[in-house]
Amino acid sequence: MPQDMPPVGGYDPVQYKRNLPARGFRPAVYLFGTAAIMAFGFYKVGKGIREHNELAREKMWARIYLIPALQAEEDRDQVRRYLADRAREKELLGTETRVYNSDRFVRPTFAVTPEHVTK
């Protein structure tokens, strides 16, 4: 009995690959495209940060130029209250007590308030 033999010319190749069309661009295009978008974005962010720094500088210097005027007004008010306190104490108690053992100006923590609100 003759043996079963392959067909003449061999078998057809077995189709194990999927036969799908490749969609879209080449991978490199996506890679460089993303890089380009990111680079542009970082460029804009950098611009924004630089401008932000300059704006902060502008704001800071506006404040710096104002500080002496504001501080002078505040100091004058503090001295006025201090001298008024001293005068009141002199009038009521007849003494001028030195609270601190130094002649520096100390912003008062406590204030003597009148018993009845007069104003």
Partner: peptide, 13 residues
């Protein structure tokens, strides 16, 4: 309240 009667209108000498 301590903030209530802190008016001090005495002018500077």
């Amino acid at each position: 309240f301590n903030q209530h009667a802190l008016y001090d209108t005495t002018p500077l000498p």
